Amino acid sequence: MLHFRLAEAPFDIGALRAQLLDPRAGAYASFEGWVRDHQAGRAVVGLDYEAYAPLAEREGERIVIEASERFDLLAACCVHRVGMLAVGDLAVWVGVSAVHRGAALDACRYIIDEAKRRVPIWKREHYREGGADWLHPQYQES
């Protein structure tokens, strides 16, 4: 399974993880990115993610395929939320399975880093004191 998708609603990471299971796998790695309550010293109460879905899904799938080929994965998946999210909500999830742990860990990092760098998803933060700002992609890393 190689898959990237956008999700407008919360999703079940247990079901996604189950799809990565393979008797040849010696390793599984995952990453969960959550909405945090601060950014650059400002209190955050929530955020909106917007995406150009056709391009985002195509580029996201390309990243998952690249990771699979580069790290010799058995399976990989990445799901990114769009829409309004609250502090503590799961915003992005990456899961991979591989024969060895090094490949699984490296691939998981590669997928999330490349997705944040290349997939056209924009984040608008809403602040406790009022107002909102669109963040430049370079600030999405942390």
Score class of each variant (00 low, 15 high):
46 G>I: 08
77 C>G: 06
5 R>F: 01
45 V>I: 15
117 R>Y: 02
102 G>W: 03
74 L>A: 11
132 A>T: 10
60 G>C: 04
33 G>D: 05
102 G>R: 10
139 Y>H: 15
111 I>C: 00
128 R>E: 13
37 D>K: 09
111 I>M: 06
49 Y>P: 06
75 A>E: 07
88 G>R: 00
1 M>A: 11
133 D>A: 14
41 G>W: 08
127 Y>W: 12
7 A>F: 04
131 G>K: 09
86 A>Q: 15
136 H>D: 11
13 I>C: 11
86 A>F: 03
27 A>V: 05
120 P>F: 03
30 S>A: 13
61 E>V: 03
70 R>W: 04
88 G>T: 06
12 D>I: 03
15 A>E: 15
8 E>S: 14
109 R>I: 02
101 R>C: 10
130 G>T: 12
83 G>H: 06
93 W>G: 03
96 V>N: 04
16 L>E: 13
111 I>Q: 04
107 A>Y: 08
76 A>N: 05
56 A>C: 07
52 Y>M: 07
136 H>T: 11
52 Y>L: 07
36 R>Q: 11
10 P>S: 12
85 L>W: 00
25 A>K: 06
9 A>Y: 08
131 G>R: 08
79 V>P: 15
129 E>C: 07
127 Y>D: 05
105 L>Y: 10
88 G>L: 03
135 L>I: 10
75 A>R: 15
109 R>P: 08
131 G>V: 13
66 E>F: 01
47 L>A: 08
82 V>Y: 00
133 D>Q: 13
138 Q>M: 11
140 Q>W: 03
131 G>W: 08
138 Q>P: 00
39 Q>R: 14
2 L>T: 09
140 Q>I: 05
107 A>V: 06
135 L>W: 01
137 P>H: 12
10 P>R: 06
111 I>N: 09
30 S>F: 12
34 W>Y: 14
11 F>K: 01
126 H>E: 04
134 W>H: 05
17 R>A: 14
134 W>P: 00
71 F>W: 11
86 A>Y: 07
47 L>M: 14
10 P>A: 12
8 E>N: 05
64 V>R: 10
108 C>D: 05
136 H>E: 11
130 G>W: 13
22 D>P: 09
132 A>R: 11
110 Y>C: 06
28 Y>I: 12
17 R>S: 14
91 A>M: 11
75 A>S: 14
19 Q>F: 00
55 L>W: 00
13 I>R: 15
130 G>N: 13
123 K>R: 10
99 V>C: 06
64 V>S: 06
142 S>R: 12
96 V>F: 08
139 Y>K: 13
142 S>K: 07
13 I>T: 15
93 W>M: 01
72 D>E: 08
140 Q>M: 13
62 R>I: 07
12 D>N: 15
106 D>N: 14
48 D>T: 02
54 P>D: 07
135 L>P: 04
64 V>T: 03
39 Q>K: 15
82 V>M: 02
94 V>K: 02
46 G>C: 01
10 P>T: 09
131 G>L: 11
49 Y>W: 07
113 D>M: 09
25 A>H: 01
117 R>T: 15
63 I>N: 10
123 K>C: 09
58 R>C: 00
2 L>R: 12
112 I>W: 01
106 D>S: 15
126 H>G: 00
52 Y>S: 00
98 A>D: 04
